[in-house]
């Protein structure tokens, strides 16, 4: 049996990415369940997968089982379990170094940047699982308001405030704490998304915003550079320049970002990631997942 251990069920991109991975494995016919500390299910996005608690899971584990984890800080305690381990790297952090150096652990990556770093550390093969944007985000043709701007003040609130001061006539809609469906609705009616999380290691909201047809203005990130292309589908500027860039963004450029952004996001559909995981199952990694 395959288990995917998550540190919780809260609103973090890594939680959704882990759950989506379980969902795809299940659809590929691989028995797989999500494990959270208390057995609570993430309910801020929609996905049909079983969830169990660590208390239920851990005592029943054997060497025939495989445990996938993504939080590097979980390494020590999961290493003590009898199951095989797969590290699913979603964002890079120094804590992942001993994991990558552990020859008993199979290495998966969600991002090219993570893949490169893991290969550099480990000197061995890693497997790309990709990421996906939930289907609910993809733009459905509804009327957008040129005044509405989607923001996530949880990360980089000061840069959003600077934009608000520069463009007070805009309507700023917060996606923090909202269910995925509400977030998608906000993004679909907004024209712009301000990605203000400095040095973001993951950056899924910017990709979701692209899917929803927003022009993305972002501060530099680590995790999202595979899909953020400055001047093509987004503007990437230092945080202190974000307000100026925002003020100077004309409608032609914004529309170009939207169009290219939607094309970019279309490569990250759930169906595309499922195909990627089917290929993964045919590789050597599949031996760990199909046993």
């Amino acid at each position: 049996m395959i288990y995917y251990s998550l540190p919780g069920h809260g609103m973090y991109g890594g939680i959704k990415t882990g759950a989506q991975f379980v969902y795809h494995l299940q659809n590929a016919g691989i028995p797989c369940v999500l494990v959270t500390p208390e057995g609570l299910a993430p309910q801020w996005f929609d996905i049909s997968i079983p969830v169990i608690s660590e208390e239920t899971c851990f005592p029943s584990l054997s060497a025939a089982d495989t445990m996938i984890f993504s939080l590097p800080f979980d390494y020590e305690r999961l290493k003590a379990l009898p199951s095989k381990l797969i590290y699913h790297c979603q964002g890079t952090h120094p804590a992942m170094i001993p994991i990558c150096q552990d020859p008993d652990i199979l290495l998966f990556s969600a991002w090219p940047q993570a893949e490169n770093e893991m290969r550099h550390i480990s000197g061995r093969e890693t497997y790309d699982t990709g990421i996906a944007v939930s289907d609910v985000f993809f733009y459905d043709g509804r009327v957008k308001s040129g005044k509405k701007v989607a923001v996530m003040p949880r990360r980089g609130a000061e840069w959003i405030q600077a934009c608000q001061q520069a463009q007070p006539e805009k309507i700023y809609l917060t996606i923090d704490g909202a269910h995925e469906r509400e977030t998608a609705a906000i993004m679909k009616e907004s024209s712009i998304y301000l990605a203000t999380s400095v040095d973001e290691g993951f950056g899924l909201p910017a990709l979701e915003a692209m899917a929803a047809g927003c022009a993305v203005l972002s501060v530099p990130v680590r995790g999202g550079m595979a899909f953020l292309h400055h001047g093509k589908n987004a503007s990437i500027v230092p945080p202190e320049q974000l307000a100026t860039e925002f003020s100077q963004l004309n409608s032609t450029t914004a529309q170009r970002y939207r169009d290219y952004g939607r094309v970019t996001a279309s490569q990250y559909r759930m169906a595309a990631q499922y195909q990627k995981i089917c290929h993964l199952l045919e590789s050597r990694a599949g031996e760990w997942l199909c046993a």
Partner: peptide
């Protein structure tokens, strides 16, 4: 209630 994931519409 808190242990079930919600289906994709």
């Amino acid at each position: 209630k808190e242990k079930i994931t919600h289906d994709i519409p």
